[in-house]
Write a protein that binds this DNA or RNA. Sequence first.
DNA 1: GGTGAAATCTACCTAGG
DNA 2: CCTAGGTAGATTTCACC
Lengths: 152, 152
Amino acid sequence: MTLDPADLKLLAALQRDSTLTAQDLGDALNMSPSQAGRRRQRLEAEGYIAGYRATLNPEMLGLAVEAFMQVVMATHTEQNARDFVRMTRTRPEIVGAWTLTGEADYLLRIYCANLAALNTLVQQVLLPHPAVSRVQSQIVMERVKPDAPLPV
Amino acid sequence: MTLDPADLKLLAALQRDSTLTAQDLGDALNMSPSQAGRRRQRLEAEGYIAGYRATLNPEMLGLAVEAFMQVVMATHTEQNARDFVRMTRTRPEIVGAWTLTGEADYLLRIYCANLAALNTLVQQVLLPHPAVSRVQSQIVMERVKPDAPLPV
DNA sequence: GGTGAAATCTACCTAGG
DNA sequence: CCTAGGTAGATTTCACC
């Protein structure tokens, strides 16, 4: 039920590249392919591995602008919160949203084609939302360390 | 060279689940497995797909605390920036780092086992760094929309 | 767009502690 | 009796037609 060093190495390897075969994993962990495959199946079944995803290149898809937005709510009713959360889940350009401690109520992570699209999102979607009081956009200038694996 | 609607559907599907076979993709796109596989190979070769990764469950790994930190630099020399960037790439609990427009110089995304570990990072690593002036931690209270696929 | 060889996965079987 | 290693059938991939 607990993770031994081999499990951690296996998880780290699959975070970097999920196309590694049981043979590859066995080589890396000094065990037989059977054992490595069995371990992977166990880690999947126990829920350590949430899924296998393709990672895309934002630039190649015309998503030139990444941004973070801090959103402050005007009123903190339950209904407002539900509405806002539903909106974030509907908009595909919002690729992450969190509620945080501190002054801002929400942090949004956005991918857009250009600055105009970002502005449209703010002016047409966020600011018109009844519960939203203030939005502060912060555009990403450089990805210093983008989307690294979890520390296992 | 440009992406047609089938390409976009294929990329969206692989973002959700990269274990889909050429047959599965063919079924979803109403084309033969050969064609679907060929398209995938083309999108990989052209660089639209950066890689295939396993997504892990942070909670299962004992990573109970997610946080964002806004870091303000004391001095903006080239050397300071390089040092700081190297530090972020070294620390595994820093899973993302960006330079932003606005008052803060860096935004860091962190995964830690607990609040004590987070505090240790701030006190032992970030604040002692010669270039760092101020750090503002914002703990994630709720993941409203965590790590969604890119909008394709 | 289809076909077939090569590789991979997975369930089952056998051996050893 | 339980765990590790190996094996074979089914599935998938990929180069070629």
